[in-house]
Simulated scan of single mutants.
Amino acid sequence: MTRRRTIEELISEARPGDVFVPADFAETGSADAVRKALSRLVSAGELERPIRGLYRKPRRSAFLGKGVPASPDEIAEALARKFEWHIAPYGDTALNRLGVDPQVPSVVRYVSDGPYRTYQYGPYTIEFRHTANRDLSRLNPVAATVVQALKALGKSGVTGEKLDIISSRLDDSQMDKLISGTRNATSWVREAVREMQERRTQNA
């Protein structure tokens, strides 16, 4: 029989900066025992609690000599994992993640198949907007982000320059999955992806 591993062992094997949810440690004991153990590790400085219900192995910058906080994306992805949501960056957040808009928004927005929720994390507001859009479940995270970015631009806002910027963030495999995943998307989104691929080939 395999020995039950401890929370301390699992955390020691994790990378600095990894974010955990209590369910990650379900194999180590009961929910109450996990919660108490995590609280003890927070008190001991072995873990930090960026927001309620999430735990993180501290990460320090050797150059700056101080702790590096989690990014809003890391927090959002951990929340999605905790609640078993599918999410994708939305609006200005999607445009920023793909380099179309260099300004980091103070309200970091995602579409989600979960309920509408907002969280405060440092200087950021993390907002989840409910959508029944099946793109979230049938597209991989990169493709879903591209689709949300295109929708944020709108049909009239899509230009060759912006398509080239988005394309530059994708490797060949991601581009192929984007093409196959958007075959049943709204016609103008499908056409924008096709143009992106054509421009990518011409510029290669």
Rank of each mutant, 00 (worst) to 15 (best):
E77R: 08
V108N: 02
G65E: 13
K177Y: 06
A70E: 12
S112G: 06
S156E: 12
Y90D: 13
T145Q: 13
D113G: 01
T131G: 01
Y116K: 06
P69H: 04
K66G: 10
L95M: 07
Y124E: 09
W85R: 03
Y90R: 13
E161Y: 10
I75D: 09
R134N: 13
S167K: 12
P115D: 09
K162V: 05
A88P: 12
Y119L: 05
E77C: 07
L79D: 07
A70G: 13
A132V: 01
T145N: 12
T131D: 01
V111R: 04
D164I: 06
P115A: 05
I75S: 06
G99C: 08
K155S: 15
T125G: 00
K155G: 13
V107F: 01
L150W: 01
R81Y: 14
T131E: 02
L139K: 11
S173N: 09
R138W: 15
G67I: 11
D92I: 01
G65Y: 08
Y90Q: 07
D176Q: 13
V147D: 14
Q103D: 12
M175Y: 03
V107C: 05
Q103F: 10
G91V: 05
D171F: 09
K155H: 15
A80S: 01
A76L: 01
V158F: 06
D135M: 14
L139C: 11
I126G: 00
S167N: 10
T131C: 03
R138Y: 15
L79Y: 07
H86M: 00
L136R: 06
R129S: 05
A94T: 02
W85A: 02
E127T: 04
H86G: 00
F63E: 15
D92E: 10
R97V: 14
L150F: 05
G99W: 02
R129T: 07
K66V: 13
V107K: 13
M175V: 05
A152C: 08
V146L: 14
A94H: 03
P115Y: 10
E74H: 13
E84M: 12
G154I: 07
Y110M: 08
K66D: 11
S71F: 07
T93V: 04
L98A: 05
G99H: 02
N133Q: 10
G122Q: 11
G67S: 14
A132E: 03
L136Y: 09
E84Q: 15
D92M: 05
A62H: 15
V68G: 13
V142T: 13
L95F: 02
V146P: 13
L178A: 12
D164A: 12
A94P: 02
